[in-house]
Amino acid sequence: MKTIFLVMMTMSLLYGSYTRDATSKTVYDSQTNLTWEDGKNHLYKWEDAVGYCESLNFGGVQDWRLPNVNEMLSIVDYHVQGAAINPVFSYLVNEPYWSATTNAGKNDEAWYVNFSDGYSRSFPKDANRRYVRCVRQGKLSSSGSSGNAATLPAIFYLLQ
């Protein structure tokens, strides 16, 4: 019992509110109630990045979109050295990822989040291809079966 408890604690500390579903290749975050695409690394210019997520059919759903800057910042983990993203993500690159948020002062630029250090900056939409990770609201109905125990809050086990 104590071993199980310890494993749960470690998983909880390492992955926090995240669960990866290996079948659908998605990561669900219970804190934000967002599901993240985690099946491939894509590189697009900004408009193509928006279009890619809009037309994505993945994990049995089509309601994917390019995340806004706050959503992108929500998966930054400032405790992880080297790559500022939770290790629950299988496909990750220590590079900038586009957000769907335009720079209000320079409309030809959009905000990106660089996972080498977890910082956001703005960059011309049309200049270079950047990495893309699409997001959708809520949990995929098919991803309920695997790995859920690891994400139950530790307090749940203390109260039992």
Binding site: R65, V69, N107
Partner: peptide, 18 residues
Amino acid sequence: DGPVVKSGQTTIYISGDD
């Protein structure tokens, strides 16, 4: 950390953006 707050952007620069 809880849920994510809106960015505040309301202008649509391209369909499907923030």
